[in-house]
Each structure stands twice: as C-alpha cells, then as structure tokens.
Design a protein around this nucleic acid. Structure first.
Lengths: 251, 251
DNA sequence: TCCGTTAACTTGTACATACAAGTGCCGTTT
DNA sequence: AAACGGCACTTGTATGTACAAGTTAACGGA
C-alpha cells in the first residue's frame, strides 16, 4: 500500500496500464485502447492520458502509434535497484541464503586508486572492509570495499558479520542511489585464493563498483570478485532506450 | 544535418537543452532557466517547454523541481547502440585498428543451446561463424556466432575477413535493434587457447549476446570471449532510471 | 536584530481546444 | 475484381487556462 496521499491521476494511469502489460493481461502485440477510449475509461483528459502513455513508451512497454493505436511491447528486463546493489538482497531474491565472514574492518589511508574513485586526496583516511561472501554456505565472492570516512565510521557500530552493509547504511539515512559498475575478468591472487579456495590464476568475475548519492557524492568504492558460475550480469539494450540491468544466477 | 523536414518544436527544444548540458555549458549543479524564461527564449508555450524538460528529466540530465528551478544533472554515461554492438565500430571509436581472421563459416544443425536462444528447433540449420578478432594486430577476442539461416546465408556472399558483420547485415536491411548480454568469466579452453595464445584455464571475460529485431525476432546468438585487460563493460544505474551501458577499454 | 507572515515566483496537475499528419475502411468507378 | 478517393478514426503537435503545491525573499513587528 503506498502512501495515504492520493497519487496524481497521470501516475495512477501509468501504474494501471503498466500492470496490465507486465502482468500479461495485454500480451506483446496486443493493440491497446485508443486515447479516446482511455479518456472515457479513466474519466481523464487526453493530455493526462497522453502523459501516462508517454511514460510507458519511454519504458518500451508500448510501441508504435501515429494514426494507429500502439501495441504492447515486450515487458523489459528489470530488477529493483536495491536487489541489484545488495548481495544479501539479491541472494534472498533467488531463494538462497547469503552469508559473510569479515576478515578485516579498518581505518587506513586511501590508496591512490581508491582516492581517485572517492574524490578525496590519497592518504586521507577511509574505512576498508574485507569480507568473504557466501551463498548457501559456499564461498561465492570476495568483497573489498572502501567507504568515505563519515559513512564508514558508522560500520564500527555494526556487526558486519550479521548481514547487509547496504541495508544498514540505508537504514541510517545514507543516500545510496547511484551505481557505476565495471565488469571484467581477473586471475585469482592473494586473498582471493585464500578466501575462495581456488587455485592462483583461476578466473574470477570482477565487479568494480562506485556507489554515490543522488547528488553524485561518492560513498563507497568496491572491488568484488566472484567465483564464475554463480552470478552473471545480464544487460538488455535497444537502439532506442537506455539499458536494463539485472544480476542473475547461473542456471 | 538531419532530414530537411523541420523537427517539432518540442524536439528542437529537447536537443538544444541537452546540448547545453552535455557540452558543459550548463555544468552539473547549474540552475537552469525557469519555464517562463524558456517560453520567452524559445517563443514556445509552457506545455511544449514542459514536454522537452520531461524528456531531459527522464534522461537524468535535469534533476529537482517543484517550487524551484531544476539543476543540471551529471551527463549520463552513454554510447551509441551500434558502437556497443559492433566490435569493429567500437575499436574505431577508441582509435584502434580492429581485425578479424575467420577460421570457419559453416551451415550446420543448431545445438540445443543455440536453438533455445534463437527460438528454433534443435537440429534446424543455422550459420555458424568462428573468428579471431584482433586489436592493433594483437589477439583480443574469440567470436562464436550463430545466425538464423535466412540471415546467415547472406554471409556466404560476404568476405568475413573484410570487416564488420554487424554493419554488413544492417546495410542489407537486417533489423538489429535489440541486444541482451550476459557477462561472466570463464576459463580458456579449446579454440580459445589456440586462437588467443593463452594457457588453458586462463581467465577470459565472456559475453553471450542475443541480438534481435525491434519486433523481438532473434537474429544471432554469440559467445564472445575476451582476453582480460582489453575491454570492460561499464554500467551505470540509479534508483530512478534505467541503466546506461558502455563498453570501455581498460586504461 | 530576529522571527514570522505574506507575497511573488516557481513547478506540478489537469483540463480544454484546434489543427497537422497518419492509417484504415468503405464505397464507387473502371 | 481491383484501384482510387474520401471519410472517419487515430495519434502528434501546440496553444491556452486554472488551480495546487513548494520555495524564497522581503517586510513588519516584537
């Protein structure tokens, strides 16, 4: 149930039509009602209806038009932002038990790479966390995260073996709204070998992630290395719309 | 120069304002003119101005509002769809010379995996291409692509050592509008070792890609394996907008 | 000098009207 | 039977109006 405050009509229209499409009620290719028909159905003006339709068109949920009624598009790949950003929440979404073993949480001077990413001076203190993440009790990922100090200091009052740092920080009012992820493959080395129990040189899927506030202020920079075969990143792009991004388990 | 047909005013407004933001004329945080001021400047009605602003807001190029003027947002990460989809075009965009050595192009029955992805029956014929892709004459990636037969047959009249299959197909009217990419890490094996000159078991970055028409008809399914350190996939997501996706070289 | 209130400015929501441009169907003519 | 033209329906573009809701600045009073 959303807030008790009534939503604007154009928003309610958008939500109702989106539900009809994503639920399959209007399957792909179904010709949706005309603007005039929608005006009558929702007792709305044409401008309000068109505003809702414009949103759906932007999301790729309706396609076509000009002289003929648009049709329902393919429901786009999607995943809640927080499910993508939090390993704990992602694991729960696929019905698996996440876990964490913290090897280290320390305040130390930022390396040049970390400093560059967080927009601070090299040598300025950051809070660094090294954790092994598990999935159904099996090693899944090594997480090396650096937090800007004013956020990271909150973690000294948090049991990092108890669950999601992402959720803890959000519940303490930290604005984690933007992510930039760089994905590549690396050879296992150092703590990877020790924590994940793999051979040196074994392939790992690496996600380097900068998380920022809505205003663009860097909050954390992380280097996460996954055992292959456990998680994939799937992206859907089209020539007209921005991409959709989801994290998926390997079948 | 776009088409000689004049663009709608709301589109010209959108383009002009987008340019002011992405060019840095209005840097991040800059308070943009009020709607009334924009109406005067462009001799447009408030509805038309608001339509343009709505588009920019959807792209994250302006943020804030309600009672105060919005501010310019961070210019979003972006890359032309075709630059992302075509290795040849991508290489050109970073000033590097792409190359290709075709090891095989054959018509053969689809494997169950390929058939499932292309939406055909296992055993139906597809056209398979195995190519080594080079960057500045160095091995960069092994490309294993399967095409639905009616598209793949075009390739028998194309010198696959001459350049971009993606561009060739588009120039022959093949609609390649949608991509779904799954990224993970794998260990080098078989042709990988032979073609890329790496040790068996070495880490490779794998991109499995299904390319479809705008209508969703599968066209090609590819398994591309990259030497690490040559290309990354960078994705930007926010809690409010769909993700942006770019392919970037490793520094 | 500070605080509260009011007014002016802003964006957000919703409606109405008019015409341009595209599509499809039906009727008529060849 | 096919083709063409016209009409009705559709969406796209653009304008205007009115009021709600949010923000900020200025002024007056304590």
């Amino acid at each position: 149930m959303s807030t008790s405050q009534p939503q604007p009509l154009h928003q309610r229209l958008t939500d109702e039509l989106r539900t009809r499409i994503t639920s399959g009620l209007w399957s792909e290719g179904f010709r949706i009602p005309s603007e005039a028909e929608l005006c009558r159905e929702f007792e709305a003006s044409r401008g309000t209806v068109r505003q809702a339709l414009s949103t759906l068109r932007t999301e790729g949920l309706i396609v076509g038009g000009q002289g003929k009624q648009p049709v329902a598009g393919r429901a786009a790949l999607s995943q809640p932002f927080t499910t993508f950003m939090s390993f704990t929440e992602w694991a729960g979404s696929i019905g698996k038990t996440p876990g964490q073993q913290t090897r280290e949480i320390a305040r130390r001077p930022a390396s040049p790479e970390v400093a560059a990413q967080l927009g601070i001076k090299a040598g300025e203190p950051v809070v660094e966390v090294l954790r092994l993440r598990l999935l159904e009790n099996a090693p899944a990922m090594v997480e090396r995260t650096s937090f800007v100090l004013h956020v990271g200091r909150l973690l000294f009052d948090f049991d990092t073996d108890s669950g999601s740092i992402f959720s803890f920080l959000k519940s303490h009012g930290v604005d984690l709204s933007r992510g930039r992820h760089t994905i590549d493959a690396v050879a296992a080395e150092g703590h990877d070998v020790e924590l994940l129990g793999v051979e040196p040189g074994a392939p790992l899927l690496r996600e380097r992630r900068l998380t920022s506030s809505a205003a663009g202020e860097p909050i954390e920079y992380s280097d996460d290395r996954y055992i292959p075969g456990l998680t994939n990143f799937t992206i859907e792009n089209t020539s007209e719309h921005r991409a959709n991004l989801v994290r998926v388990p390997t079948a």
